[in-house]
Design a protein around this nucleic acid. Structure first.
Lengths: 211, 211
DNA sequence: ATAAAAAAATAAACACTGTTTAGTTTATTT
DNA sequence: AAATAAACTAAACAGTGTTTATTTTTTTAT
């Protein structure tokens, strides 16, 4: 009865091979510029074969979306070693920016594209990794409040605000908008320095939120 | 010699007609879902005619990009009547969110899509409206500093930070991410309320930046 | 008014895209 | 060895942005 299992394993292998090919092409050429035909050529199968393993292009995107959130959560997990909550919060911000810069296409998939999110909304049964990442932030904020930070502030609202700032910073940077206005007005710094310093400006604001 | 001028005027009319058709279709169906053929059908010309007036689809997008920034700047201009700089700053934030909510497709064109920005970068001669909008924010911050706000903070960096928060809030809201995590954790508010309150949370932070 | 020149508009094609259908090849079971 | 099931693919469909050759319309000159 090991035959069925071997075949099943082979199916899973090919499914994963498609995913890896798609991931590498998305990273190389971007989502819109990657065609099913290109993915098929990379794995040396016909385009129609892709559709035996994935319903459509969106399903491939969704699979990468799920993997992307796992990557982000694992990226955050090492920060559990930082015991002081406010230090951990500051490190989370830097880690978020780092993640966005190191994986721009994954970031796009997770937080910019609308299609993958719609798919998640239709899958009630499965636990959403995105929610988990948000709860990590919220939990850290609550711990900060126990240390005297952010008194009388709603933790969920503050989490939204902090997330917004991080997301805005990352997207304005990678879309080129920060570079466009930044080069002319702050030419003593390069783009990465500018991003880092804008974040430190925000941290300075958060630091004043004690008592 | 009025003949050439009349013809020129007719040319401009058609050019503008294409633009308006494109704008309405973009707003209705979104950028990617709007085809040249659909624009042509709307103005009742053949698809090829579009290319006599615009080099390609990007040039149409770019023209709308320019108009969009003019709209944004004009949206901000009424705020010059607010004399107190910090009040003006707060109002600018609300106006920014309002603009993004009322014109989601224009907002996408201005601050999310990368193509139009690249085009602007290649046009050194023309004054960029986007820069102007940023300078309005920066000028307001400088005036706030004269009133005792944001001491020892770099105005450009602070402008980036504030812009990032606004941009992050608007994009996370309209992409559905805010709704996705928000509905479960803050179901006493609807989406618009949630956005407004996250902004007020940020304003509360800015308010503490005095002295 | 008529023929020549110029301008404006288009039909048809090209090379792509995601996706589907019908058919062929390969592997397994009886 | 024949029948069945699984895996794969060639070819097509309807759509995309864009280009080329051609036709229609308008203007100019005789």
């Amino acid at each position: 009865m090991g035959v069925a299992e071997r075949k099943e394993r082979h199916r899973e292998d090919l499914k994963n091979e498609i995913l890896q090919a798609a991931k590498s092409l998305f990273t190389e050429k971007g989502y819109e510029a990657t065609s099913i035909r290109a993915i098929a050529e990379k794995i040396e199968y016909s385009p129609a074969t892709i559709y035996l393993y994935y319903k459509d292009k969106n399903e491939i995107v969704h699979a990468l979306h799920r993997d992307g959130f796992r990557l982000l959560v694992s990226h955050f997990e090492v920060l559990n070693t930082v015991s002081h909550p406010f230090e951990r919060l500051k490190a989370m911000g830097r880690a978020y920016i780092q993640f966005a810069m190191q994986n721009p296409d994954v970031y796009k998939l997770l937080f910019i594209m609308e299609e993958p999110l719609k798919h998640v909304a239709n899958c009630f049964e499965e636990w959403d990794e995105g929610d988990r990442a948000f709860d990590i932030l919220r939990k850290t904020i609550i711990e900060c409040q126990a240390e005297g930070y952010f008194k009388n502030m709603d933790n969920t609202l503050l989490a939204f605000t902090i997330w917004s700032t991080m997301h805005g910073l990352c997207t304005l940077k990678s879309s080129g908008h920060l570079g466009h206005v930044g080069v002319a007005r702050a030419n003593q710094w390069n783009l990465d320095e500018l991003t880092a310093m804008a974040y430190e400006t925000f941290v300075a604001m958060l630091e004043r939120m004690k008592t």
